[in-house]
Amino acid sequence: MSVTEYIRKSQIWRSIFRHPAPYDRRNRAVVILTNFFLHLHPVSAKKGGIALSYTWCMGGITFFLFLVETLTGVLLMFYYRPTLEWAFTDIRALRDVNTLGIMREIHRWGAHAMVITVWLHMYRVFLTGSYKPPREFNWVIGVLLLVLTLLLSFTGYLLPWDQLAIWAITVGSNMARATPFLGHEGPGFQLLNVGGFDLITNASDARFLLLGARTVGEETLNRFYILHCVAIPIVVSGLIAVHFWRVRKDGGISQPL
């Protein structure tokens, strides 16, 4: 009995993998059905549907990048304090001092890459007409995931707390004050007043809600930190689950009818 065979037959191994190695047809089906991570897949698929030149693998890469961002993001959180006093110096220390500082590079480039792969995934799904019935609703969820990906990237942009960060967020969030009715420089905000007092001011409008202050400051840093590390990832994880579930329930990877 060889060593690998001994390990494969041990009680510990068999308690983890409840089936023999996927060497034959039956076990190749079983491995997909009984493994938690693999069971996202169907057991079999049409050859044309999983061809790389058809799918471009962009959705899968996007998901993988999300996992990379989660992993590197958690590691970065150990080194980063979202306060005016520390945010910038912590990031600079990642560059100059810490051994694992390259996590920041991987996190940032991975984020840019994720924005691009989301677009290309959407591009592919459009070009193959895969949003057509019965997959209409999954396309809608996909659009939501696209928005959330952009918001994840946008909220993360502020965290290094350098000039690039606060001015990009200032420019980006200035739009919110022009929101019709809900921004203090938007059309129709004067209509929302009680007894001559404006309800919408620079301390109560949509931009204030986003920033937590009248200008991008410490409250904004805290708000964006929570959004970036907790709130949006939770929503994204939920929607990814629904997105994958619906891929399976709506008939798998699209193929000619």
Binding site: P22, L38, H41, V43, S44, A45, I50, Y54, P256
Partner: peptide, 19 residues
């Protein structure tokens, strides 16, 4: 072309290896 490739193949190994 996609219609011609409509025979079923097992996801292990054809898809999981690509991934």
């Amino acid at each position: 072309r996609e219609k011609e490739l409509s025979d079923q193949v097992l996801v292990w190994p054809d898809l999981v290896y690509t991934e």
